[in-house]
Design a protein around this nucleic acid. Structure first.
Lengths: 190, 190
DNA sequence: GTCTATACTCGGATAGAC
DNA sequence: GTCTATCCGAGTATAGAC
């Protein structure tokens, strides 16, 4: 079919992301990526130095978005409304274009851990979470803030606990629960 | 050193679990497992047919515990107190002897997904969750029940979102938040 | 019954030809 | 900018020593 082309790098990223999400990072072979693109395996190494670099090149855009969001979030007042808006923007980010990546990250924490990509993503998420649970918060509120972000992430990964809802409905359910977690409520309750 | 011994199977399970938790399932090589035990790599194949069988043999005990718990849970009345007790028993299970496995499962969902071990674990957890969120519950309550179980799991995996609390305190914090998630509260609140 | 020696396959990675 | 030849290491398999 097509001979030489100039968008091979982007095509690799797209196909790799598909396969990583489908079959997991480690179980995806560069052979499969190459085959689906109808190029040879070593040809991938012209565009990326390692398998991990394919992954990190995809995550770079997401990390940049998180940075932007974190910077904005830091400038917000410490009110419930602000926290809700932060969660809404995180949810939006996850729905918009990064759902496959987050779904992948959720299923492959192992691949991310101890890698620089994983460290950088974790870093940004921790920053966002720390804005959600202001300094003075007790352990419970901190945990709830973390769990709220986690809820949003799970809202984009339907298969994790087998809730069979349409994706958009699941996302809005997750948002509702997340907001409730960062709302002001009585100190304890065990 | 020691010549033939009879506890090799158990020693393999213990060392493999350590390494899987430390370095991830895929990144752990059977070479490393064998080296740490001072046996040869093919010797592992006398005791286990595949790498995955090492993992599933470990998970079997955990799955049995979950079955037992699920059976008990199904017989409970549909009250807040019963749900709290179910959560407490789950938390106890995770603290008792299965924390390394859960920590591992959390970090390696990819390795578990699409494997029979993963399917079986997921199955049991879904059962427990469905007992926690009785049939008539709306999507939000179902999601909250799932998130409650997730909170308990995260309570055993300190590094996930970088909360630096002593493990026992983290676990009890997780329990408090989980209980709040399955408590009776007003219908919505978005 | 327990393990070693050896070998096969396949996937990630590199060097260099075209 | 793309591909061939090649290497290395990991999972797997089997034959056979003790």
């Amino acid at each position: 079919m097509a001979g030489r082309r100039t968008d091979t790098r982007e095509r690799i990223q797209r196909v790799a992301m598909e396969l990583f999400a489908e079959r997991g990072y480690d179980k995806t072979t560069l052979q499969e990526v190459a085959e689906r693109l109808e190029i040879t395996r070593p040809a991938l190494y012209y565009h990326f130095r390692t398998k991990e670099e394919i992954l990190s090149s995809i995550a770079d855009g997401f990390i940049a978005s998180l940075d932007e969001l974190a910077e904005w979030a830091r400038a917000q007042p410490d009110t419930f409304e602000a926290r809700r808006e932060i969660l809404r923007r995180i949810s939006e980010l996850l729905e918009d274009k990064w759902r496959p990546l987050m779904r992948f990250a959720q299923m492959n924490q192992g691949a991310f851990a101890q890698s620089s990509v994983g460290d950088r993503m974790q870093d940004r998420i921790v920053t966002l979470v720390s804005v959600l649970s202001r300094p003075g918060a007790d352990a419970i509120m901190q945990f709830e803030a973390r769990l709220a972000v986690f809820a949003l992430i799970l809202g984009g990964v339907p298969e994790v606990f087998g809730m069979d809802l349409p994706p958009s409905e699941l996302a809005s359910t997750a948002m509702t629960v997340a907001v409730r977690l960062v709302s002001d409520h009585e100190p304890s309750g065990q």
